[in-house]
Structures are given as C-alpha cells and as structure tokens.
Write a protein that binds this DNA or RNA. Structure first.
Lengths: 210, 210
DNA sequence: TGTCAGTACTGTACCGTCTAGTTCCCCCAG
DNA sequence: CTGGGGGAACTAGACGGTACAGTACTGACA
C-alpha cells in the first residue's frame, strides 16, 4: 500500500508541506508559492501532481478523513469486553476526548467548516466519513449493551448522540473559539470524561445497574 | 438611542452590506470594493467610517454579539414560573435550538471560528459574551431549581453544560459541515428538543419528581 | 533524453490613498 | 417661519503598490 516511486514520494512531500500552509491561512490565504518553497519543490512540480489549488486542498482534507479508522477501533475495543460498565464508559469518553482535542485535528475541523460553503462536497464527506461513521460505531456498541440489559434505551442512535454531546460540546467549542493549545491539561480532560460518563449512566443505565 | 443623522445612517448601511460579503467569502476573500458597491457608497466613505478592513470586520461581529440579550431573557422567562418542569425544559430547549440554528447566526459562527486564530480577541469576545454568558444564566436558573429541590445536582454549571451539549452537539455540527439551510424542519427541532430535555431529566431530576 | 529547480512572466485582484467635483444638513439672518 | 450659505460628508474613479495563480523558459543533472 506504501507507494515509494519518485512520483509518489514527491506527492507526499508536497501534501505534507501544504497542510500547515492551508491550516495556517485558510484556503484563500494559502499561497502556492509558499507550498512549493516549503516542500522544496518547484511550482511546476506542484502543478504536475495537482491540477490546481482546489484539487490540492481537497486532497489534503480527504487524506486525513481516513484516520477515523483508529477511533472506531478504539470504540469497539473499549466496550466489547465484559468489564465494569462505568469504568469502560469513562475510558471510552477519555479516548474520544483525547482524540478529538488533538490540535492538528481541531485546526482541520476549523478549516473544513470555514470552507464548507465553498466546497460542499468536502464538508459532506468530512461529516459522513468522520462524524457519522464514528457515531454509527458507537450506536451499534450501545445497541449490544442494551441487548445485554445493562443499558436501557429505545433508540441506540439517540443515546450515542447524547453521549458525544455530553462529552464534547463544551471543550470543542472552547477550543474552536479560543485558538490556544494549552486550554486543557490532561487532568481537565479526565474530569470532563468522568462527568460525561456519569451523567450518561444516570440517563441511560438500567435501574438495577445504577 | 436611534441615531438618524446622515453619518449614522451611512454607517449602518455599510455594515449591513458588509456582513453578507464577509459571510460569503471570509475575511481574506471579502473585497472592500464589493462592500462599497453593495452599500451603494463610495470607497472613500467606507474608509471614513472604518479605519481599515480589520476594523470593519470586527465591528460586524461585535454588533451581533449583543443579540445574546434575547436568549438570556428567554431562559429566565421560561424557567422562572412554577409550571411543569418537564414541559418548561422542553420549551427552553426548543427556544435555544431555534435561536442557535438561525442560518445567519450559524454563518457568523463559522466565520468567527475560521478567523479565531487571526483575530484572537474576536474569538474570545464571541465566546465570553455569547457562549459563556448564556451558560451562566442557565447555571443560575438550574441552581435555583436545585434549591427548590426539583433538580438534584452538586454542580449547576456542569448541569448547564450537559444540557446544551445534549441539545446542540448534533444539529449544530450537522449544520456547520453541511452548509444547507433546509437541514431541519420545525418538527425535527421539536423532536430534538424533546429528546434532550427528557435525557437531561433522567440524569438530573430529583428521584421523587422523576 | 527527460525530469526537476529556479525564476521570470502574465494577467488579475485588491487594499488603501488621492483628486475633483457634488450633495446634503444645520444654523442663522431676515 | 423661511430660505440660503458654509462646510462637512459624499460620489466616482484612477492609481501605486503588492500579492498571487498558473504558465513558460532555462539550465543542470542523472
């Protein structure tokens, strides 16, 4: 799967250099000259690999959309065993939070949202491949827990939506509006994850396990 | 309070015309020429009222930050009477949702987030004046409900955060990534509000009122 | 011989300034 | 109450300077 021809190498080199440029300045603010310079590549080479600025941009985003894989695996891994439900949920919440609060990912989020109107396909793909996909995994996991009787819920999808809402709304918004990196220490994330997991359990745990 | 001199009129005229230009193209993409043209005003006049592009931009954002007033009033109005708690919460959720899903406000959100790195003050102000302020109002309202014994919570602020998280995470994200306007019908918003209010009650209502 | 770095070039867009002529508003004389 | 100056505010458009997307050309190098 790892292409290592000269062309593929150059292509990766350009992509890697282009990402920070677009992340820093947005689509309009990103300069192809800067991309070429940062990639130590001539502009001609950039245009050999990507037909134009737009195609380079969408390539950057689509590339990182694939990384959701890890998140879905983490979900099933954490909830599949028969351990303590409360503890599992807390761990799951903590994993989710840590993943989504990654500074690079947050910047990408901002970028995609900013350009969602200009590039509708991009926004839709990001939402479906990243957002909905992890939500769907969570939904099936919760569904299994309901069948085992440890969760009490009519609608697993709604429960999954509520779980991530409890967990993510506050920290993600804070991060989106206050650009900084040092918003939350590890301990803060622990606390947020624990609070969300406990509230979720109160709302959705079966009475006998609460 | 309503200034109607020529100066104030022109200023408002420019602001009104500039808003869609910035909303559509972002800060870098917005053209001062287009602003002037859309406002039916000469460029000279634009620069008489606003020292430069940056100041015009921040004026647009700050102007709309003031509109949170309405939201806080709605919160206290809905939760202050002694009506049915479940019904009040549902109504509050519905009001919140309707307000935040206003297309114009969503576009502003996107814009502020996109430029939060370039204009840190703007992001911070938006967050504090809009986000935190309404959250604080909700916190005190929940605190009163806890004192009356209808809610059971150690931390009113956490409860407020969870309330909005349950309610807003899904629809707001959907709207941010899928630019469209017709994402949700009124009935969908009703359903979302009801579901959030019920989950919140299960997590935070006193046992005797549940 | 073909690929790439380096760079010059073309065409366009835009910010902010400037000039010159025009319109509107307010105040006060009659 | 009225009507007409005075001066600020405004229009229209050109302009300098800069930046950038995308193309074209040259020379090196493998």
């Amino acid at each position: 799967m790892e292409e290592n021809g000269r062309t593929a190498r150059k292509r990766a080199q350009i992509l890697e250099a282009a990402r920070p440029v677009f992340l820093r300045n947005g689509y309009v603010g990103a300069s192809m000259d800067e991309v070429a310079a940062l990639a130590s590549v001539s502009k001609q080479t950039v245009y050999k690999h990507f037909t134009d600025k737009e195609q380079l941009f969408t390539s950057i985003i689509m590339d990182t959309t694939a990384q959701v894989e890890g998140l879905t695996k983490m979900i099933t891994a954490t909830l599949d065993d028969d351990g303590d439900l409360a503890e599992d949920l807390r761990a799951l919440a903590r994993g989710f939070l840590g993943a989504i609060m990654e500074p690079e990912l947050l910047r990408l989020r901002r970028l995609v949202m900013a350009e969602a109107e200009r590039f509708p396909d991009l926004g839709r793909t990001w939402y479906e491949q990243g957002f909905e996909r992890s939500l769907k995994t969570l939904t099936t996991a919760f569904g299994r827990l309901a069948e085992r009787g440890v969760l009490r819920l009519d609608d697993p999808e709604l429960a999954a939506e509520h779980f991530v809402g409890l967990l993510l709304w506050i920290p993600v918004n804070k991060a989106m509006f206050r650009g900084g990196n040092d918003l939350y220490a590890e301990a803060d994330l622990d606390r947020l994850a624990e609070a969300a997991a406990r509230a979720f359990l109160r709302a959705y745990a079966s009475p006998d396990t609460a």
